[in-house]
Simulated scan of single mutants.
Amino acid sequence: MPLGRSRAWTTRLAFGAAAIGNLFTAVSDEDAAEAVGAAWEAGIRSFDTAPHYGLGLSERRLGAALRGRPRGQFTVSTKVGRLLEPVPAASAGDPAGEFAVPATHRRLWDFSADGVRRSLDASLERLGLDHVDVVHLHDPDEHENDALRHAYPALERLRAEGVVKAIGIGMNQSAMPARFVRDTDVDVVLLAGRYTLLDQSALSDLLPEAARRGVPVVAAGVFNSGLLAAPGPGATYDYAAAPPGLLARALRLQETCERHGVPLRAAAARFPLGHPAVAGVLIGLRNAREVADAVDQSHRPVPGALWQDLLAEGLLPAGTPLPDGN
C-alpha cells in the first residue's frame, strides 16, 4: 500500500526488527536471519528497525539478511533521534537497557540537523544500503521543539535529495504525531500501542486528523507488549506488569474471541485495520516460528459478529470503526 503521496509503500503485515536486536532476550544470528527469510517467503516486504534496537544490532542483522535480495522489492524504515556513542573499555557483561547486548555504546538524544544526518549515515552503513525508504523521528516526547525546528526540516531536505523516500514519526503516544500531521508534511506515522483492542486513545486526535489529511498510519504494538497475545499471570502491558483491571479486560476480550473460534492475537492484529487511516500492522518477530504464527493469524478469518459482540459487551467504545468480517 502506498504511504501517502510518497514513493514509499508498506505491506499490510510488516516486520518489526526490534526483537532481532535482542529485545529483552538474546536472539542468535541464525534465528534472526531465519526470521527475515521466513518473512520474505511469506510475502512480507516491509521491515522496520532503528539504531536504538540493540545498539545497532538490529540494523546490522536486518541488512545482512536482506543483502542480495532485489532492492526494489522491499522497503526499510529506520529512525533518527538517538546517536550511538562508543563507550571506552565497556564491559561485555554490562546491560544496554532492555536489550540483551553488551553496552559498547551509549545513546545520546540528538534532534539537530547534524544529528539527523550523522544518525542516518551510520544507519545506512550498518544496513549496507545506499538509501532507506522511510525515516521516522523516534520518540521525540521531550524534544518536540527540536524535532519540529531542526530534525524535521533536515529530513525534508534529505527527502528532496532522494536519500529518503518518506518522512515519518514513530511514537508511543498519539497527541504529538497528530500535531506533526497538522503542522508538517510527514508522509506516515508509526503508532505504537495507542490503537489496540485495549487502548483506542488515538481515536481522539491522531486517526481522524490522519484520515482527513491522507496520512497513513502503521499500527505497531498491537499486543500492548504481550497482554493481548497471552493474557494471564505475568503478562505485560507497555513493558511493565499488567494492572489487574487491564488483565481482567484482556481476559474478557479473550473469552469473547474464543466464543467465535478466533484467537485473541488474531483479533488484536486485525482490529487496527478497521480504521481507514491505518495502512498496515507491524509486529515484532524474533524467529521463523513467530513469523509463521503472525502470518497465520493475519490470514485467519474473523467474523463480523465478533466485532459486534465486542461493541455490545462494552469492550469497544460505540462508534469504533470495525474491520470487515472475513
Rank of each mutant, 00 (worst) to 15 (best):
A14K: 06
G221H: 03
G221M: 04
I169N: 00
L108S: 04
A50C: 05
L3I: 13
R194T: 06
L264K: 14
G304L: 06
R159P: 00
L62R: 03
A64C: 07
A154C: 04
G304Q: 06
A220H: 01
T10K: 12
L197R: 05
S112R: 07
P276Y: 15
G81H: 10
S112F: 08
R61K: 03
S28I: 03
A230V: 04
V76D: 06
L311D: 06
H150R: 12
L227S: 08
D130E: 15
L311N: 02
R286C: 01
P88Q: 15
Q254Y: 12
D205S: 15
D296Q: 09
R159Y: 04
L84V: 11
V291H: 02
L84S: 10
V281G: 01
I167N: 06
L13R: 10
E161R: 14
R179Q: 12
V218E: 07
V163L: 06
H260L: 09
R286T: 00
L310P: 00
I283K: 00
R7L: 15
H105Y: 14
A288K: 01
T10A: 15
D114L: 07
L127A: 09
R118G: 06
A248F: 10
R126S: 01
D133Y: 13
A18E: 04
Y239V: 04
E209I: 03
R12Q: 05
A248G: 11
A33G: 07
V101R: 04
L310W: 06
W109T: 14
S6C: 10
L253Q: 08
L247F: 12
E85C: 02
A90R: 13
T78N: 08
F99G: 03
G4I: 11
E41F: 00
A211Q: 14
G234S: 14
H138Y: 13
V164S: 03
D187Q: 11
E290S: 09
L57C: 03
T25I: 10
S58W: 07
Q308P: 00
P231E: 15
T49A: 08
A210R: 08
T196W: 03
I44F: 06
V217H: 09
D199I: 03
A103V: 01
E255L: 09
A235F: 14
L227I: 15
R252G: 01
F15H: 13
V132K: 10
G56N: 02
S91A: 13
R252Q: 15
P263C: 15
V188P: 00
W307N: 01
Y237S: 13
F111E: 02
K165F: 05
L203E: 09
I167Y: 05
L310M: 03
M171G: 04
R182H: 13
T320M: 02
V132H: 09
V116G: 07
D141Q: 08
D29I: 02
P95H: 02
G97I: 06
K79H: 12
V76W: 12
W40S: 02
A50M: 05
T256L: 05
D114G: 04
L207H: 05
G115L: 08
S58L: 05
A241L: 15
T236D: 10
V295E: 00
F47S: 07
V281Y: 01
S204Y: 07
R106H: 08
V36F: 02
I283S: 01
R252F: 09
P216A: 15
F74R: 12
A235I: 13
T25F: 10
R12D: 01
L84Y: 12
R259Y: 05
G63H: 05
H131V: 02
